[in-house]
Amino acid sequence: MSENIIKKTYTCIICPNGCDIEAEIKDGEILSITGHTCPKGEAYVHQELTAPTRTIATSVLVLGGELPLASVRLTNPIPKDKIFPAMEEIKKLTLTAPVKEGTVVLEKVCGLDSDVIVTKNVQVK
């Protein structure tokens, strides 16, 4: 076996199965991959190797609502290093009740292919 082949174990985070996936990697290319139980696992390892992405969930302020906050999440995963910049963008938002689940409150956060949507209905107080 050549010296620059790296064996690495990944825990897939795509679903709660959390498969342990073993990958042999050479110069950033996957030579072999075992342990995944679905195609999403292979895609996950590829993504982790090239540009790892995550989704985030947080809340935004609601004025005049029965609750002070509406929970929000991203519609698509974003690069890991954009998580904190995205949090900063989302923190600037303020909504006014009523707020409806599914409403897009920020399109293309940080210019990325991911929107911020409301995940909880908040009625007027």
């Binding site: 989704t55 969930a57 929970s71 999440r73 689940e101 995940t119 909880k120 209905n121």
Partner: peptide, 10 residues
């Protein structure tokens, strides 16, 4: 699909 808790409940 991957939902948040409030969406699942709703």
């Amino acid at each position: 699909k991957s939902l948040s808790g409030p969406e699942y409940a709703q």
